[in-house]
Structure formats: structure tokens, C-alpha cells
Design a protein around this nucleic acid. Sequence first.
RNA 1: GGCUUUGUAGCUCAACUGGAUAGAGCACUUGACUACGAAUCAAGAGGUUGCAAGUUCGAAUCUUGCCAAGGUCACCA
Length: 613
Amino acid sequence: MSITELIKEGTAEAVKELYDHEVNANEVNMNVTRKEFDGDYSVVVFPYTKAAKKKPEQIAEELGEYLVGKHDHLTKFNVIKGFLNLEVSDAYWVNYLNNVAQKKSLKKAPHGEKIMIEFSSPNTNKPLHLGHIRNILLGWSCSKIYDALGYDVTKVQIINDRGIAICKSMLAWELFGNGATPESSGIKGDHFVGKWYVEFEKAFQAEYQPWQKTEEGQEVFSTQNKKEEEEAKFFKSYKNNYFNNYSKLGASAKAMLLKWEDNDEEVKALWNKMNGWVYEGFNVTYKNLGVEFDDLYYESGTYLLGKENIEKGLNEKIFYKKEDNSVWIDLEDAKLDHKLVLRSDGTSVYMTQDIGTAIKRYEDHGAKKMVYVVADEQNYHFKVLFEIMKRMGESFADGLHHLSYGMIDLTTGKMKSREGTIVDADDLMKDVIQAAKENAIEKGELTELSEAEQNDIYRKIGLAALKFFIIKVNAKKRMVFNPAESVDLQGNTGPYIQYAFVRINSVLKKAGEIDTSIAKNYTSMGNTERDLISQIFRLEEVVQLAADNFDPSFIANYCYDMAKTYHKFNHDHRIINAETPEAKAFRIQLCQVVGNVLEYGMDLLGIEMPERM
RNA sequence: GGCUUUGUAGCUCAACUGGAUAGAGCACUUGACUACGAAUCAAGAGGUUGCAAGUUCGAAUCUUGCCAAGGUCACCA
């Protein structure tokens, strides 16, 4: 039994014994004692005042007597108001540390339960940006966390490879590209295709702006401007209408989409070629970010399955058809709305594809748990999707989860492609690594290493700064991205934690081979040393918490706290020249375990540790 | 407007899911390298937790009402 279980069960038992009152052990209100008080764990005794009919202080005294009297590992207690502060014996902690040190792995044994995690999920018409990075870090980290808990994890992305957007890129390339390729122009594939998407928008505006001044445009403005908006504002909101009903470019793009859906050979070939460029580009970005996937799904490959299943559901009266042939589902009794699932022309919408994809993925992998990492702007969409899957009677419907995260703002406001404020993923990574490099050169610690080794360290530091900056924030909250702070290497940052690890390495190396078996005999543990062990003890709980909440920020904050305590420990205590051989052995062992825990925790966040920096 | 999320130090974030005097980092002021790596440590200053009621031994956390910001209410994805 662990020490926390012992305290909880002991307290429950004591309350029963002393006051004849039943409490469930896991309902015992206990937490880590705050720094300013003596003790390791505190039991809150207020809840027992009714049963005991005594004052909180007296109850705490009585419970303290009982627990310390009965359990060897609880040595002392003190009472402040309604709080019973218990002190755990050095022997328990020393022994606990020793047990952890013997473990080969901090991971849990595999138990085979399957979970699938979808993240990244890009469109093929633009490169990845800062928003994707948050998405990818969350998805990747959750995958690592569930893997560490013994799950059989499958990482997937669904790629939005079809639709009008990619047709715009294709059309622009066809019209203005003169056969250029990423190779010929020296541009990374995804950026290359994104460039033609932007070119399309330019050409479209060049067509749209003059049209607004034509007779036709002015007539539209005067007859359809019901809200009496100003001209510029009206035409802004009229853009889609113009695209669909007047624009030559719009008509061409739509014609291309129709050809695509009709399996036109030429269009499909072009589509394959351009998407291929994009995937090459994405793969470079993923590799640089240090992530990979087990399986890929393409909307072009699942939307038909969605349609089929909707037809089936139509027969079962889960869906209904309107007079215009569009298909809907009525979710009003689930406090949702009526939702369209097939257009009147029979073509599919976003929801159609997601229905098909969910079914296909279950067929392929059989995971009853399925996590979608998607920004919170789609909360409603996923509520609806999950409700639909339930009504379709899918066996995996209850295991669906939307990991909804807040979008990233810049210090200057929102990211908007229209205003050119999108932070590109590749540029960003390059920048943080460069900043780390400049800093490291200034420090001059790495001069005798080869250039390749140096670059590898710069990469690890830069990416740690960036990744930690993003992942330390509670996933569901919106966050502000400050580029200057994201390359910070001091304070609450990734490199601060890396530095603790590097210091540990350095000490261990200098210490050489040490017999740590006498660590158990160490009897004069200081507060910082106790803090470190008690933090190591919390690891399991924190990982579980992060998994339950689908939120790696718990682990990020945990790693930071631990690194902080380590730095203090490293500053306050001599390790190699410790006062006694026992102290030395103990501290070396402590360093080993802290190092392992930090490396393990950071790995769960997708952050690598350098040996030195 | 309906539904929904978020308001904590100048800024970026915590607060172990209802517990003690609300904590870190950045920025600012000051001290510590001839020490196992100063990307560190120590100290100072900084708060009516948006506002107001309520629930209770106890509220940043739960309830309600305001205020402010975001998201969403497409035959877009």
C-alpha cells in the first residue's frame, strides 16, 4: 500500500473506530502539506465535526494520535485549525526512492485496450501554422501519455484533401504556373501549393473589385443590399455569392470540382500531383517537430461510406428527407438542432464525411476509444456528430471524445490569413532553433563538440522552448503567443528543465560508478530532499490526471516544479562531496531518479533532453 | 439575439478539482560564481481572483444575475 492510500484508509478506519462513522477511504480529504507548515500530507478534518460532535482541533488531535500510534511510517503530527499535518518517516521515503531507482521503466505494462487519437488534420491547400502546432503537440503528447499507461495507441490524421479549396490552388497553378514545380522553384511542396492558393485569391480579387463598379455590380448592390450596409462591407459579405453566380474564376473552380467528383482523369492527375507535393512538405514539418502517424485517412476516401450509412439510417428513420431531397436529422430532444447531413443535390457535407470516417476507422482498428483533437470552434459539430453516432447505434459511440483546445492569439490579436498574420510552422521552428543557437554560442559551453552535435543540441533546446511554451498552458484555454517569450530559455521554460537534467548528468558523470546500496541508511533528510521524493511519488497520479483530462499541461507544470526543486537542491547540498558516504549515495540515487523522471515526463510532452547544453 | 467558453499581479500562466496567508515566470530593484555547470539560487515589490448576491465551518473553484471578451448558430470545412 502506498503512503497516501495508507493515510486515507487509516483515517477512514480511525473515524469509524473513534466516532462510529462510515467514510469511504477515497473520500478522505487529503493533500500535500503546504510549504509553510511542517509535515508531508495534510488531512482536512472539518467533514467529521458532525459525526464526532467535537471541535476540529480536537478531532485532528485524536486522529493524529491514532494514526501515528498505529503506523510506523507516520512519525509525527501537528494540528493547525482543522488541518492534521502528518510527517512520513525518512525510512519510508528512502525506501520508496530505492524502489523507484530499481525500476527498469516508469511506463505501465501494456493491457491491450485500444485508443485512437486523431490530430493535425490539415487541409491540403496551405502549409501548417502555429494553430496546427498546438494541435499536434496535444495529440502527440496524449498519444505518449496513453501509451505510457499501457494502452494500444493508434495515431491518425484525417486529411481534408478534397473540395473547392484545393481546386483553387490547382486552377491557379494551371493558369499561371507555367509548369513550375517545388523543385524548379526551390519552394517546399506545401508552401508551393499554398502559394497558388494565394495567387487564386489575388486573381479573384482582381476580377471582383472591378466588377463591383460595373452596371451589373451596382445593380446587385442597390437591389440586394437589404441591411443598408456600406458598399465595401456589402461586397465583402457578398463574396461567396459572387463566386458562385458571377465569377469566371469561380465557375472554373467549380467546374473543376465537378470534374473531380466525376473522376475526370486529367483533373485527378493534377490533384494527385499537387497533393503529393503537399504531403512531401507536411512530412518534413512532422519530422522536424518529431512526430509521426500510424495511419492516414483521406476525406476523399470516406465520404462515400458516410453517404451509404446515411442512406441506411434513412430507412431506419434516424434521418428524414425534405421535399428538396436534402437529408436531415432532428436532434431537438438532445437540445441540439436539426442538422443537414446530405445536400439536396445528394453531395456530402463535412458531417457526412465524419460519419463515414468514424465508421471506417472502427472497422479498420477496432478502437472503442477515439479522440479528436480539434479546436474549440468546432464544439458544436462534435456534439452533433457524437449524438448522431449514438442514434445510429454504433458500438463505439460512447468512447468518442472531442479534445477541444483553445485557439492561439498573437499579442497583436488574432491570426488571420487575410491580414497575413499567420505564423508559419516551419518559419517558427527555424526561428526558435536559431535563437537557441545564438544563445548557446554566447555561453560557449559546446565549443569542443562537432558541428553536427552542436546543431542537434540547438535543435533540442529551441524546440523545447517552443513546445513547452505552448503545452504548459491548459489545453482548453485560449492562449496568447508571444514570439519573444517562446524563445525564452530562463524561468518557467523547457530549457530550464533541460538544464536541470544537464546538471544531473554532469554530476553523475563526475561522481563515476557509485555503490548506492547504502543510500537506505541515510537518516538526516532535509526539506528539499523530502520535497523531491514526494514529488517523484506524485508522478503516477499526475500522468493519470493528464490522461483523464486529456491535458498534458499537468505534466508540464509537474516537470517544471520538479526541476525547480532540483535546482534548489543542487544549490543547497553538496552531492559528490557530501557530509557522509550515506548522504552521497542517497543524493546520487536521488539525482538518478529525478533525471529519469524529468526525461520521462518531458518525453510524454514530446520534448527531447540534451546530455549537455 | 439563442447556446457556449473564458475573465486571477503590468504581461504570460498556476492553484493537486470545495481547504490553510491565492502561487510561479517574465519585466523591475537587490544580493550570491576561485563551488558538482550562474540557462542557476536567494531576497524585495507587485492582488477587492471582472462586479454583486447566494450555498457552507470554508469559495478563484459550486448557483444565480449583471459586465467584458471569444466561439458557434451554413446545402463551408
